[in-house]
Nucleic acid binder design. Structure first.
Lengths: 141, 141
DNA sequence: TTAATAAGAGATTTTTTTGTCTTTTATTGT
DNA sequence: ACAATAAAAGACAAAAAAATCTCTTATTAA
């Protein structure tokens, strides 16, 4: 479903949502260690998210990554599309270019129905709200 | 979700289910052309399916690939697991090793629903029956 | 029984993805 | 101003996935 880079991106964003803020920035090193993820690779991913204004960063001492209030209003759908491109939730599960609701492939109905469920959640839940649920339910990232 | 190889495998099996039989075998070349898929790559995939008795084949003139009646009783779940391995429907969408219903990752519930829905169909519908539906509804493969 | 045919098997190449390292730039506390 | 810090950027390497090519083996029809 998601590329490795995308999985790391989602986890990193959620980690920042829970553990960082304007006043408490976190460096790549710490995030990578906390998530047990390759440091340099994660750095690249964070750069890309930062360039697309999905996360915030500052250089220099006491710098690092965090989520602004604005960032918290974005959704994981934005994150996913930033890393894996805009077609993740639309492309045919069998890779057929002509597949659609009008012209469905043999797996279209089932694939579409259940993928939309995931898509819906990622699209309609702000990252900030998701973070609150994660803290409340003490979920692992 | 599925690797490229797996997508080709599913399509090839469905193609055989609809267009081939014991008495009407089809060669790689024809399948590749019909599905617009790389020939040599498809050949490798068909070999693997054949080794695992998910499709049948004979060499030599008038040889080729087809589905036996036995083959038609298998499911696409078998095909998928043959190519992409047994964890496709079980592994965490974020790649977390500890993720489960008891210890869910932040996306577990929706991701699980998505995959189980698809999994269920692939698991409980015989390839032979699926082929009949495809013919009835004139679906593209 | 031989030439033609088509899958099987193995090796290899290409492309994409993942992961690493080094240098540059911006920022901050002293 | 300056040394230290941390992200940004660019180049590079390794691994995995996708795709291609060649040779071998089995089968069949002439």
């Amino acid at each position: 479903m998601f590329s490795q880079a995308c999985k790391y991106a989602i986890r990193a964003v959620l980690y920042l949502a829970v553990h960082a803020s304007e006043g408490k920035k976190v460096g790549v090193k710490d995030i990578a260690a906390a998530l047990d993820v390759p440091k340099y690779f994660l750095a690249k991913i964070l750069q890309q998210l930062s360039r697309n204004n999905l996360i915030s960063s500052t250089k220099g001492p006491s710098g690092g990554f965090f989520l602004s209030e604005k960032n918290r209003e974005a959704t994981l759908k934005d994150v996913v599309e930033c890393i894996d491109g805009p077609d993740v939730f639309n492309s045919c599960i069998l890779g057929l270019p002509i597949c659609s609701s009008e012209n469905p492939c043999p797996l279209h109905v089932q694939a579409f129905a259940y993928r939309e469920g995931l898509h819906y959640q990622l699209k309609h839940q702000a990252i900030g709200d998701l973070a609150k649920r994660i803290e409340r339910e003490e979920q692992k990232i």
